[in-house]
């Protein structure tokens, strides 16, 4: 076993991206709203389509299609303490896995992953399943989110309120 084994760049990138995704997941699970908001690029887009995975959000309804200022508004609403759909806050824990990382031609990084999310709220206990697509840009030692797409496995069905950060 060599002690100075060079880690190939793609393995390092996969590790870095995975750590970023786990960090983001933790901030969401723990309702660390401001720290989560700080992960967004100035041109960030947070997208949760409805009725399939290939709709045009400029033409059809999405569950969330937030530009950066609407992400900020979402966070400000939480901070009022009167966002009743999250007061009391849901108990949330997610497991994110199956992470695949690609470097795009423009230098941005695209990561895809699966997540299973457990949510407990006043209504009861619920499980959500989704595919995440992250579009990330290098920022300092880490990354910033240019786009996060959440493809809920049941987004063509009637859904209960989804007010925690997914």
């Amino acid at each position: 076993m060599t002690t100075n084994k060079i880690i190939p760049a793609d393995i390092l990138l996969h590790h870095e991206v995975s750590q970023f995704i786990f960090h983001e997941a933790k901030l969401q699970d723990e309702h660390e709203y401001d720290a989560w908001e700080a992960l967004w690029a100035d041109d960030g887009v947070y997208w949760i389509p409805a009725n399939g995975t290939d709709i045009d959000p400029e033409k059809e309804m999405s569950i969330i299609y937030d530009n950066r200022s609407r992400i900020a508004l979402r966070i400000r609403q939480f901070h009022t303490g009167k966002r009743y759909a999250q007061e009391p806050k849901s108990g949330v824990r997610r497991v994110t896995s199956n992470i695949e990382v690609t470097t795009l031609e423009n230098g941005e990084i695209e990561a895809r992953a699966n997540s299973i999310i457990f949510e407990a709220n006043l209504r009861g206990e619920f499980t959500w399943a989704c595919r995440y697509i992250y579009n990330l840009r290098r920022k300092g030692d880490g990354f910033e989110m240019k786009k996060k797409t959440v493809l809920l496995a049941n987004n063509d069905k009637a859904l209960y309120t989804l007010a925690f950060l997914v």
């Binding site: 033409k59 309804m61 569950i63 937030d66 508004l73 006043l122």
Partner: peptide, 27 residues
Amino acid sequence: RRMRQQTMGSVGPAGFLLADDSEMYER
């Protein structure tokens, strides 16, 4: 276009308005 943008913000499972209305319905 603006109708669609405002609607997506306000209503549905994650809407700024309807998530809270629905919370009241359930309570």
